Amino acid sequence: MLQFILRRTLIMIPQIILVSIIVFMLAKAMPGDALTGAFQGNPDVSQEQIQQIREKLGLNDPWYQQYGRWLANAVQGDFGQSYVHKQPVTHLLAGKVENTLLLSFFTLIVIYIIAIPLGIIAGRWTDSWADKVIVTYNYIGFATPVFVFALLMIYFFSFVLGWLPYGSSVDIKIEVGTWDYFVSRARHLILPVLSGSLIATYVTIQYLRNDIIDQKLKDYVKTARAKGVPEGKVYTRHILRNSLLPIAAFLGLEITGLIGGSIFIESIFSYPGLGYLFIQSIQTRDFTVVTALVLISSTAVIVGTMLSDIILSIVDPRIRIE
């Protein structure tokens, strides 16, 4: 196992470097640059002054020189300066990471709480009325865009019923650290979490349902039934144990997918996380922030893939990853 982790870590290094080059080049290909976004519409700053600042910051240097400086600083945890927000990118991201991690964590919990029982029911009692209802729910979740569902949630629970807030992550009038502060944060999380999880459950439900149906036809299940093993134990000790393995293996990818895929939810709910910051940075051409966010997300996907392999090998001792 240790050799596997070391080997995968060494393979990750050239992958991350390649991703960083692609990310940097795509950011440089964006129309304008950070100074264009920072001084756009400001009559007090002339084009000559912008050019002087651009030259001073090295933004007119060849791309490989800019990339070399950026990569050397990024290795040390310095992703540069956000010209729009007037602060280091590292400090800017630190204020958003907690919100995105909270949103992703609770979304993942709700996904599994809903998807695993529904997947088991649909797989065990195939073609029953419960299975048909669950499959219909899956089709609706698959066909409904997340932004449409999120807007419907906002309209119903915020405007019609008035139960839940729909913007920001906490009420700004509440003092930080108080009980009311944590309650406010929890209430602001409910709608984004439900909007992201109720739509995303169809993947886990369908995968678990199909795997249970496939496992029911395996020879070891037929043998267990022929030996007189009770049907409940056939499912819990044999079918479910094997069907849940892929779900556990996908945990790493699920986590990284939620962290990187929170752009729509955070944008719709004006939730101050990494996804919302990403959209703002693109709009203002703050490419130092864009490159940092994309690089972090890409690295998380690579690490998540390795994490999934490790989890699978731990869950199933028969699997040997050497």
Rank of each mutant, 00 (worst) to 15 (best):
I5H: 02
I5Q: 03
S20A: 14
S20N: 06
A27M: 06
M30N: 07
D33C: 01
D33F: 00
L35W: 00
G37S: 07
A38N: 02
N42F: 01
N42A: 10
D44L: 14
V45N: 04
Q47R: 10
Q47F: 00
Q51S: 15
R54I: 08
E55C: 06
K56T: 05
L57F: 02
G58A: 03
L59M: 13
N60L: 06
N60E: 09
Y64N: 05
Y67L: 15
Y67D: 12
R69M: 07
A72W: 01
Q76V: 08
Q76P: 06
Q76K: 15
S82N: 03
H85T: 01
L92T: 02
L101S: 12
L103P: 03
L103V: 02
S104M: 09
T107V: 02
L108S: 14
L108E: 10
I109D: 04
I111H: 02
A115T: 04
L118T: 05
D127M: 07
S128E: 04
W129G: 12
A130V: 01
D131K: 07
K132M: 14
V135W: 00
V135T: 13
T136Y: 00
Y139H: 12
G141Y: 07
F142T: 14
V146R: 05
F149N: 07
L152S: 10
M153N: 07
F156G: 06
V160P: 09
D171C: 13
V176R: 15
V176K: 15
W179L: 15
F182A: 15
S184P: 09
R185P: 15
L194H: 03
S195E: 05
I199Q: 09
A200T: 10
Y207F: 13
L208R: 06
I213T: 13
D214P: 02
K216W: 00
D219P: 01
Y220E: 02
V221A: 03
R225S: 07
R225D: 01
G232T: 08
V234A: 10
Y235G: 10
R237T: 12
L240T: 05
N242T: 01
A248F: 06
A248Q: 00
A248E: 00
A248L: 11
L251R: 02
L251V: 02
I255F: 14
L258S: 11
G261P: 13
I263R: 07
E266A: 14
Y271N: 08
G273Q: 05
G273R: 12
L274T: 10
L277P: 10
Q280I: 08
Q283P: 04
T284H: 10
R285K: 15
F287H: 05
V289I: 07
A292N: 04
I302S: 09
G304D: 03
T305S: 14
D316M: 05
P317T: 05
I319Y: 01
I319G: 03
R320I: 06
I321M: 08
